[in-house]
Design a protein around this nucleic acid. Structure first.
Lengths: 242, 242
DNA sequence: CGGCCCGTTGACCAGGTTCAAGGGTTGTGG
DNA sequence: CCACAACCCTTGAACCTGGTCAACGGGCCG
């Protein structure tokens, strides 16, 4: 949108996720096909990239930040069906009308491609398509694991597992003493955690204060979590979350 | 397992799902690469093709019958994460150790490929890989829709939506009067329906008798369902299941 | 025909939701 | 730098959906 790129190869050369994102499947000199149709785009916390129901016109790689994927029932109940981190692929390349809403949970930067152009490039680079297939299958396994959580785990297990999962995928909070265990900042508020786990905001809050009261974790501010007893937390999660 | 094929091309020529399964992406003369490594295999109701935790050594296409995909928690609670119908692809080609159990809900026949061989053929036929990618993405959309159901819908909505979904994918019961509405046989028992929907067997049973009592459906025998008022059923499902 | 399994129904219980009110944090403007 | 307002989170109490435990009945198969 009136955003002018400095120079394409420059952007890729400096890219933080050059070899975590799908781009990792392409040699330096093959990257031009992708970068030719890509534009970098910032996305502020709270902004939506794609609305469910709109024509899904773009795909993207995440460079920095965290996004959510969400659906909702006709009467407005929301379910977050996945979180996306740097290096993850965003969008539904083969779908005309998006079935999911993609929005930023933190300030983020993306590398965005027009959907149709992306599909064409895909056809020209088998390694790219192969990697996307593998990632998609991994995403499917992840979705199915989450179905188990939604359908069969208790509120306590859900929250414990969620904290472990985030702790593994998120960078440690800068400047936290190592002895405090895993310390990180939640990219989601309580309401969004509830939407991930199929609970209400109150239940999430209560489970967190239970965990804090039992000394397994510590909470400071609204968003900072320290996992003091990972072993106990794993037991509470039903040995699921990591 | 000591099972001798009559003649490869013969098998494909007579195949009921020749152009619903992945094979649809291949021309007649390309099929040989797949059929060369494939073996047809019957699977009796209740039999398991792949156990979660075992090395996942095969993939398959379903020719006839219905399979389930399931996971379980460490302490044995089960969640069925998907049903598979004729033409659907079975297995986790890029995974060494299966994370799901695949088992037959009805007598079934499959076309089975060794996992590694299948991956190799995939690399040689771009159209095959492309179609598998599209199917996998569709499966992902399906899984995410089901996450919404598991996380955010009530027992009544779950059961109503489930019946609608089955009604759309299952053949009508042979010899049923058209005036009776959609009539079909459930391929699952109550316990398995409960495992699909994240409920208990008792809740499923109660919801079904509620639907019957209100005249929306009729039940006869243990497995036959007739949908008498599809419109009302859709409203009860939250306009989700079809 | 008889036994077994599966499904149904009932009574009770509990986890989680709902409704409501009361603090803390955060970010903003003076 | 502090004060203030908005928002988010926490906590409490009552309610309700769905789970649990238990007994019964009916269909299906041998």
């Amino acid at each position: 949108m009136g955003y002018v790129e400095p120079h394409l190869d420059e952007r890729c050369a400096a890219c933080v996720v050059r070899d975590q994102a799908l781009c990792a499947s392409l040699a330096d000199d093959e990257l031009s096909a992708l970068s030719a149709i890509g534009r970098s785009r910032p996305l502020a916390r709270g902004q939506t990239l794609i609305w469910a129901g709109d024509s899904s016109s773009v795909c993207a790689n995440i460079v920095t930040g965290v996004l959510k994927m969400a659906t909702a029932t006709a009467d407005g109940r929301e379910q977050i069906v996945g979180l996306l981190f740097p290096g993850d692929f965003v969008g539904q390349p083969f779908v005309e009308e998006a079935s999911l809403t993609f929005a930023a949970l933190t300030d983020a930067s993306l590398c965005v491609y027009p959907r149709e152009g992306f599909v064409e490039v895909l056809a020209d680079y088998p390694a790219l398509e192969r990697l996307l297939l593998q990632r998609t299958m991994a995403a499917l396994d992840d979705a199915r694991a989450r179905m188990l959580t939604l359908g069969r785990r208790s509120a306590g297990e859900k929250v414990a597992g969620f904290l472990l999962e985030l702790g593994n995928r998120l960078p440690r909070r800068p400047g936290a003493p190592a002895a405090a265990g895993y310390v990180f900042d939640l990219p989601l508020g309580r309401a969004q955690i509830a939407d991930v786990l199929g609970l209400t905001i109150e239940t999430v809050s209560r489970q967190l204060t239970l965990l804090r009261a039992s000394g397994v974790i510590a909470l400071s501010g609204r968003r900072t979590v320290a996992i003091h007893e990972p072993t106990r937390l794993k037991r509470l999660a039903g040995a699921a979350g990591a």
